[in-house]
Structures are given as structure tokens and as C-alpha cells.
Simulated assay, not measured.
Amino acid sequence: MKTSKRLEQALKKLYTAFHNNELNPECCKQCAVGNILDNTDSWKYISDTHGSLELNYIGKVHETLGRKFNGYRPLELLKIETIFLKACGYTLPLHYKNEKPKNSTDKDILFNGLNDVVTFLCHLDNISNVMDYTKLFEFENEKPKYKLDFSS
């Protein structure tokens, strides 16, 4: 499957963060967007609230100028983060009084967040969801429709 450079880089970064226990929804450098942006927190200045879909003045300027950060527009970054936080069980915007998971770095919780993020990233690039394994179980005339390649 052919993917865009930005998607490939984002997937590698998220995969690495997940397996190295460097994914944390409550840290601007280690959340989904923080990892996509090379563990920087500069993206937090495009919105006034973590988990909001509303750009602030700085974010609107970047969006209007067509700026992209590792291939993603400011509004796309905010959407990625809200998808991640919601799928991890947070009530948005992120605030200490709002509901959140008991263990935000639990692998199952993080996997749920990443699954939804990857689905969205694929949608942005108009490609099939790389997390969709249902094709593996499609069959025709009692034989698998697609061959699973184990060579690497």
C-alpha cells in the first residue's frame, strides 16, 4: 500500500512511542501530536485549551498562511489530538475536573487512542485504514481472497 511521507513518518513515530512507553495523553510532548511533531510542545500554542478544536490567534495565522507542521495543518493537529484524547477516555477539554481514565498510560487505553488516530490519519490521506485487518478474513470459493505475506 502506498502511503504519503507524512503518514509514514507519523505512523513510525506513534509506533515507536507506543512500544517505548513514551506515549502519554496528558503530556504535550508525549501525546499523539507531540510525538508526531518530534516530541515538541510548540503545537500547544495554536489553541488556548488542550483538547479544543478551536484555533487561537496564533493558530489562525498559521492556518491562514497555509503552514504545515510535519505535513499537518494546525486544524488537523487539533483534530488528531481530540480524537486521541476522546478515544483514551477523556472528557474534553482536558481539565483536572473533567473525567479521565484511571491509568492514562495503560497500553489498552493508548491502543484505543492510536487506533482512532491512525484511522483518521489514513482518512486525511485518502487511503485504506492500515489498521483494518478484516481483509485478512475475506474469502472467495472457500479460499482466502488476499494472501498474507509473512516475508520481511
Results as ranks from 00 to 15, higher is better:
Glu22Asn: 15
Leu94Tyr: 10
Glu81Arg: 06
Asp116Val: 11
Glu140Gly: 11
Glu54His: 08
Ser151Gln: 08
Tyr96Ile: 08
Leu75Thr: 11
Lys86Gly: 03
Ser47Gln: 03
Ser42Pro: 00
Cys122Glu: 02
Leu92Val: 04
Asn103Val: 12
Val33Ser: 05
Leu121Pro: 00
Leu92Gln: 05
Ala17His: 01
Asn39His: 07
Ser42Tyr: 12
Leu14Tyr: 02
Lys13Gln: 15
Lys135His: 14
Thr105Tyr: 00
Gly66Ser: 09
Phe69Glu: 06
Cys27Met: 08
Leu65Asn: 14
Leu75Trp: 06
Ala17Thr: 00
Tyr72Ile: 03
Thr49Ser: 09
Arg67Trp: 11
Asn35Ser: 11
Glu26Ile: 08
Ser128Phe: 12
Phe69Gly: 04
Tyr72Cys: 05
Lys102Pro: 02
Leu85Asn: 00
Tyr146Pro: 02
Leu11Cys: 11
Glu99Asn: 15
Pro74Trp: 02
Asp149Lys: 11
Gly89Cys: 03
Asn126Asp: 14
Lys5Asn: 09
Val118Trp: 00
Ser128Lys: 13
Leu136Gln: 14
Asn126Phe: 07
Leu77Ile: 07
Ser47Glu: 00
Glu99Gly: 14
Asn98His: 15
Lys147His: 14
Asn21Leu: 12
Lys102Trp: 02
Leu94Met: 09
His123Cys: 11
Lys79Phe: 08
Leu77His: 01
Asn20Trp: 07
Phe139Val: 14
Leu14Thr: 02
Val61Ile: 12
Pro101Ala: 10
Val130Ile: 13
Pro144His: 10
Asp41Gly: 10
His50Pro: 00
Cys27Arg: 08
Asp38Ser: 11
Leu37Tyr: 00
Thr91Met: 07
Lys79Cys: 05
Tyr45Ile: 02
Asp38Ala: 12
Gly59Val: 06
Phe111Lys: 01
Cys88Ala: 06
Tyr90Ile: 05
Leu11Ile: 13
Ser104Gln: 00
Pro25Gln: 07
Glu140Ala: 11
Leu92Gly: 03
Ala17Trp: 01
Pro93Ser: 02
Thr40Gly: 14
Arg73Val: 02
Asn141Cys: 13
Ile46Gln: 04
Arg73Thr: 09
Pro93Gln: 07
Ser4Asp: 02
His123Asp: 15
Glu76Asn: 07
Phe69Thr: 06
Gly71Glu: 08
Leu55Asp: 01
Ile46Thr: 05
Leu14Val: 09
Asn70Tyr: 08
Asp108Tyr: 04
Thr40Asn: 13
Leu85Phe: 05
Lys143Thr: 13
Lys86Asn: 12
Ser47Thr: 13
Lys12Asn: 15
Ala17Tyr: 01
Tyr90Gln: 04
Ile46Ser: 01
Cys27Ile: 09
Lys145Arg: 15
Gly59Glu: 03
Thr91Trp: 06
Leu23Gln: 02
Leu77Lys: 04
Pro144Asn: 12
Thr3Ile: 14
Leu53Trp: 04
Asn126Ala: 12
Leu124Phe: 01
Leu121Arg: 05
Asn126Thr: 06
Asn103Leu: 06
Lys86Glu: 09
Ser4Asn: 09
Asn21Phe: 10
Leu7Thr: 10
Phe150Trp: 10
Asn70Gln: 15
Leu78Ser: 01
Glu8Asn: 09
Gly113Leu: 03
Lys2Met: 09
Thr82Pro: 04
Pro93Asp: 03
Thr91Gln: 14
Phe111Asp: 00
Tyr57Glu: 15
